[in-house]
């Protein structure tokens, strides 16, 4: 199965820029479907980026993060070819993880 996570990590000198796009409904639990039934909350709570055994970025998310979340950040200390590990867990206990090579 294709991963729910799409990542692009590019190193420019000492700084690595990371852009991630995750496929997730991010339901708030406040919206009703066409039958008038509440769609239960279903959203990513924590998203983690790890590089060389160290957390480089941790996101704690609530329901106000848009559907199919996008995030961008940069960090220092990695070089081309290093591996970036990305993982998320949602409020229903589901999770996904992937690794990306820094280009």
């Amino acid at each position: 199965m294709a991963s729910s996570i799409r990542v692009r990590a590019t190193a420019n000198g000492d700084i690595t820029e990371v852009q991630a796009l995750i496929q997730h409904p991010m339901d708030t639990g406040l919206v009703k479907d066409s039958k008038g039934e509440v769609i239960p909350a279903h959203f990513i709570q924590q998203l983690k980026f790890e590089c060389n055994g160290k957390d480089v970025f941790v996101a704690d998310w609530g329901t106000a993060v848009s559907k199919d979340p996008y995030v961008k950040f940069s960090f220092k200390g990695a070089k081309k070819g290093d591996e970036l590990k990305i993982s998320w867990t949602d409020n229903k206990g589901a999770s996904d993880a992937t690794t990306a090579k820094i280009a």
């Binding site: 160290k54 970025f57 996101a59 704690d60 995030v71 220092k76």
Partner: peptide
């Protein structure tokens, strides 16, 4: 509260995301 990001040492204090 929409989102909270932890910025460890070595990570640049800048974040872009999309919120509702």
């Amino acid at each position: 509260l929409a989102a909270s990001y932890k910025i460890p040492d070595g990570t640049i204090p800048a974040v872009a995301n999309r919120l509702k």
